[in-house]
Write a protein that binds this DNA or RNA. Structure first.
Lengths: 236, 236
DNA sequence: CGGATGGTTGATGTGACTCAACGTCGGTGG
DNA sequence: CCACCGACGTTGAGTCACATCAACCATCCG
């Protein structure tokens, strides 16, 4: 696996490692390990000591917070190129599980931490990304705290569209060009949005009967009127 | 103001600057400016170019996200020692306003950014703090998305108690030792918790009639049963 | 075929919102 | 000094959006 080296890595240009030269990359490669994780499997449990961190190479994962009684809230989604875990010591605040079969490049925390210390550019990139993630989390707080069910779902679908790359951000489309295959079940969407399965389902049919989307199969969603979808999302 | 130097600064030990030696501090001091901001006044508006950043020395501030129709959500609270702003370029995602008369030590972004580059320890502290803030934001997503009104208010009061230092975190108290003076109006509490003014008020009297808190005056809250308050908050 | 999983839909319940009235406090001006 | 005002908080009645409970359907797979 890791004997293949990093040069052919799918996220070579996007992940934190993009700040490293080929030579430096060799050092990181020496401590890295490829990890495959099946859809539905959990990579880390909240409360565990987080002994590894790494990069998402392929697939999609969720970060989940739990209440004592089992209620759960998905607090973040991870895409290829994203960094996972905390370089510093301490127990993990959230569980991380795979939504689709995923592929990661992981490092033991201590040597990676040392690596970060020696490579300021990489640390700086991590800082910048963490700040971006913080802004996104706060933006989602507005949606969770003040949004209606329709706004939540519309906003979620828009995020999925942009992340899937089906529609260049900001572009307008006319007919149903954009089709996305959601990697989340209705229940998981509900956990992202702070809703119930039934409400997500109802809002989905609501958007469908309004002609804004089409739902050819369970997790397939075809956007027929992007502008209308944007109008129903929360803007700020 | 800044001629007094940093040695007597109230947050000398807590703010980012604690990573700097007295000598290095002089350089920072040279570009810093003290700023007083009155309760209710806005320091930065969402959408503005964020040309400064700084440290909170005294007082308390809020970060607010707005929807197009005026709905608002407070996405973060700032306490003495906290860092404000983005060192990098870009427009501000959220507005920042003072909840109490506040005192800040601000720097133009560019020279501060340069300072950060030269002082890895400071940048590292900023990274660590940003990660902590991200964890807190995500934790609050659980509360916003899945919490009941009572859980939200109980959690908020507990945060206020801990931040006010009235009760050492984790300690148990018996009688009404802890009294806090909330710097937020009911409406602002509602904006933190994603509720309405009326619901906050009702939950407040609900906790009062249950004997858990006492509300001697508008913003004064006396905790009479901390354990019961914790039991009504969301735990994970 | 039968069971499991995931999704939709309907009937009903309820927690929080909305609308509205009223109380309290602190300031301001006659 | 009191009348008035505005900001803030409380409380009540009614409503509504979303949750809950429950039935049903489609797909997949052993």
């Amino acid at each position: 696996m890791s004997s293949e080296g990093c040069s052919g890595c799918q996220v070579r240009e996007r992940a934190l490692c993009s700040t490293l030269s080929d030579g430096e990359l060799a050092r990181l490669n020496a401590i890295s390990r490829q990890k495959h994780i099946e859809r539905g499997a959990t990579l880390m449990w909240a409360g565990d000591e987080g002994v590894v961190c790494g990069n998402v190479i392929a697939g999609m994962l969720k970060m989940t917070a739990f209440a004592a009684d089992g209620r759960e809230q998905i607090v973040g989604l991870l895409y290829p190129g994203d960094f996972v875990g905390r370089p510093q010591a301490g127990e993990l605040p959230f569980s991380i599980a795979a939504l689709t079969d995923s592929h990661l490049c992981i490092f033991p925390r201590a040597p990676f931490q040392a690596m970060l210390d020696d490579h300021i550019a990489m640390e700086r990139m991590l800082l910048r990304r963490t700040m971006t993630a913080l802004d996104e989390a706060r933006h989602r707080m507005l949606l969770l705290g003040r949004g209606t069910a329709e706004e939540k779902l519309a906003g979620f679908l828009l995020e999925m569209i942009e992340r899937s790359g089906a529609v260049p951000s900001g572009r307008a489309i006319t007919a149903g060009e954009a089709t996305i295959d959601l990697p989340l079940s209705r229940g998981q969407i509900a956990d992202v949005l702070g809703l119930t399965i039934e409400t997500v389902s109802r809002q989905m049919t609501h958007l469908r009967t309004a002609g804004i989307i089409d739902v050819p199969g369970g997790r397939l969603v075809e956007v027929r009127d992007l502008a209308a979808l944007r109008a129903r999302a929360m803007v700020d």
